[in-house]
Simulated assay, not measured.
Amino acid sequence: MAEKTLRTPRADAGRQPSAAESSTAVGLDAVQVRFRTKKKDVTALRDVSLGVASGEFVAIVGPSGCGKSTLLKLVAGLLRPSSGAVRLHGEDVTAPRPDIGYVFQRAALLEWRTVRRNILLQAEMRKMSADHARTRAAELIEMTGLTGFEDAYPHELSGGMQQRVALCRALLHEPPVLLMDEPFGALDALTREQMNVELNRIWRETGTTVLLVTHSISEAAYLAGRVAVMSARPGTVTEVIDVGLPPERDYTDTMSRPEFRRATARIRTLLGAASAAD
């Protein structure tokens, strides 16, 4: 069990962020997370500091068990740090945040609901205006290439299409920050490449701040403007690499660019040859 647990939201939303903080969508400052088991105390994250600017795409890579998913839970407010601070747009994260979107490795769609109704589940949970939600869902369905499948059920969709539905659901309420936890890990290589291209396009069109956890070095370098490389447990950010590529990226061309090769080579050096999939 985590040493610090969730708390109810504060009556006071907290201090007003400064101009500099407002431009930072996600901020982690000297964050530590410690867990207590029956036998010992375990430090999952140690002294993690990272800033993500509004509209930026940052990927996080690291060995299994280093705390990458734990870091996303901290940003979402699903877990409290043992020490240090986590902020969204300058405001301390003290409880689950309604202003984020979250995409997991599995699409987790409801089998008895159609594509459209799976997407609109977000609206029902958040009590959004029905008219606005339907309009927004239609926009996202078109944006993600799901037009014609609005009334299909999950078992009628490929894995890649199911993940597109999950992405639409996460973006329905137009969150300023999107958290993605290995969202394409279960897909075959070709579908994963296609989803990478789609995600790059959607990110450029929406301007959403994205924090992506992945085990794939090439995926991280293709999608992100910067890649945060984490150490083995207790996880900490060992280096943040500036990929140095333009936001709009052709997949095949990007793979051959010197900036991409330099970034992936540096990530491999930091992780070790066997630490991450490519």
Rank of each mutant, 00 (worst) to 15 (best):
T5I: 15
T8C: 13
R10Q: 14
A13Y: 05
A13V: 11
Q16N: 10
P17I: 02
S18K: 10
E21D: 14
A25G: 08
G27A: 12
L28S: 02
D29M: 08
D29P: 00
V31A: 06
Q32C: 15
V33N: 06
R34I: 12
F35C: 11
T37S: 13
K40S: 15
D41P: 05
V42K: 05
T43A: 05
R46L: 10
R46M: 09
S49W: 00
S54A: 15
V58I: 12
V58W: 02
A59Q: 01
A59T: 03
I60F: 01
P63A: 07
P63L: 02
S64A: 13
G65R: 04
C66G: 07
T70C: 09
G77Q: 08
G77A: 08
L88I: 09
V93A: 06
T94W: 07
P96F: 05
P98G: 08
Y102Q: 09
R106M: 11
R106Y: 13
T114Q: 05
V115I: 08
I119T: 07
L121S: 04
Q122M: 12
A123V: 08
E124I: 11
R126C: 09
K127G: 07
M128Q: 07
H132F: 13
R134M: 10
R136V: 06
R136M: 08
A137I: 11
E139S: 15
L140T: 14
L140H: 10
E142Q: 15
G145N: 08
T147Y: 08
T147R: 14
F149Q: 11
A152V: 00
S158W: 15
G160Y: 12
Q163F: 11
V165H: 06
L167D: 05
A170H: 06
L171Q: 09
P175G: 09
P176F: 09
L179E: 02
A186Y: 09
A189S: 11
L190C: 01
L190P: 01
L190G: 05
E193V: 14
E193R: 15
Q194L: 15
M195F: 08
V197P: 00
N200P: 00
N200L: 10
R204L: 10
G207F: 08
T209A: 05
V213T: 02
V213P: 00
S218C: 00
E219Q: 12
A220V: 07
A224V: 06
R226V: 07
A228K: 05
T238Q: 14
T238I: 14
E239Y: 10
E239W: 12
V243R: 03
V243D: 04
P246Q: 05
P246E: 04
P246M: 05
P247T: 13
P247S: 10
D250P: 04
D253S: 13
T254W: 02
R262S: 11
A263R: 01
T264Q: 03
R268E: 07
L270C: 07
G272D: 04
A273I: 04
S275N: 13
A276S: 05
D278P: 03
